[in-house]
Design a protein around this nucleic acid. Structure first.
Lengths: 178, 178
DNA sequence: TAACTCATGTAAAAAGTTACATGATTGG
DNA sequence: CCAATCATGTAACTTTTTACATGAGTTA
């Protein structure tokens, strides 16, 4: 239940509403653990029922501000230190590479080019965040930057791989048709 | 519906049973699109009903061999050329990094060390596959190796990042307690 | 003949996505 | 006052996971 722990982690920093948390899922968290609005409100309700968080303030427009409880902090700590992360990994764009042999060499090359371009756009977006986001000198932000650095390196690796793969495919095609 | 297209892609190479396909989901495909046994058999049934694949042979122990149909090939091609891959990305181990500030510096460092070790094990496993798998000189295998190369580069990047991150965290701790 | 591998299936639950629905408040 | 943003909720559906269930053929 990573969504639950993502919410606990954010609330450990400071109280927030579902709407506030959603904004973070649409920005920083989107790159490591995407979540939709409908999923969020449901989970917050269940977490409150379980005593991990509590409504500590209400505002205009039916706003509910949630705070993490001591039980919630315990659960967050338990998750981080006593459980192993699920390292399974899904990538539709990489899955497709397995099946590029069913396409013409031109189509396969086009796919890898688009892959490289997309990765380059991704990289540029991360660089923009690194250089222009309003970073504070706080511990949470230090770790956010460390996580971002992973994204940067990952995107760079992806660009390089896709260019290499494109060349690899092109070379084989040239050799086969020469 | 990536699972469906993963199955089509494998059957495009040659006919296979659910059990055969499952073995590939437990080896090569496991690194880009994990799937469980129960999901597979259900999906194969639905695909046969939709006319994308068909049972072309039956063997001992109730074995059913599926083949891709012309409609299935069309659908695979349509997927690869006419639709954009979903690039969303989930990583529980990276999500955790966001919340390491809630731990003691020692606990955070231990997490990043374990991350590096796990990535190194991953890298070693990929190298073993590259060097010892029974690669054939075929187009499908060429693309499988290209996909594997992504995994290798990705794992290398992860090891380097985790070591850098560990040093980063350690340095901050030393500075703060000096 | 016992253990192992082959081989398929289903049921229930959890997690995630898409779509619909509603209304308050604020800024121009 | 109109558009945008804030703010929450629910219903239906799809996807994925976990667990149970069964039995045929193979090998030591």
């Amino acid at each position: 239940m990573s969504l639950r722990h993502a919410l606990l982690g954010m609330l450990a920093e400071h109280p927030a509403s579902g709407y506030d948390l959603l904004k973070r899922f649409n920005t920083s968290l989107a790159h490591v653990w995407p979540a939709k609005q409908s999923q969020l409100y449901g989970e917050l309700g269940r977490m409150a029922e379980a005593g991990l968080i509590a409504v500590t303030d209400t505002g205009a427009r039916n706003r509910k501000e949630y705070s993490i409880t001591p039980e919630g902090r315990d659960e967050l700590h338990r998750w981080l230190t006593q459980t192993k992360p699920d390292r399974s990994f899904r990538s539709e764009s990489l899955l497709r590479v397995f099946f590029l042999w069913t396409l013409s060499p031109e189509e396969a090359a086009a796919y890898l080019e688009e892959f490289a371009e997309e990765a380059a756009r991704h990289l540029a977006a991360f660089e923009a965040i690194r250089d222009h986001a309003p970073w504070r000198d706080t511990e949470p932000d230090r770790y956010a930057r460390i996580t971002l650095e992973h994204g940067l390196r990952d995107a760079r690796t992806a660009v390089e791989w896709a260019r290499w793969a494109g060349a690899e495919v092109g070379a084989a095609h040239t050799a086969a048709t020469a």
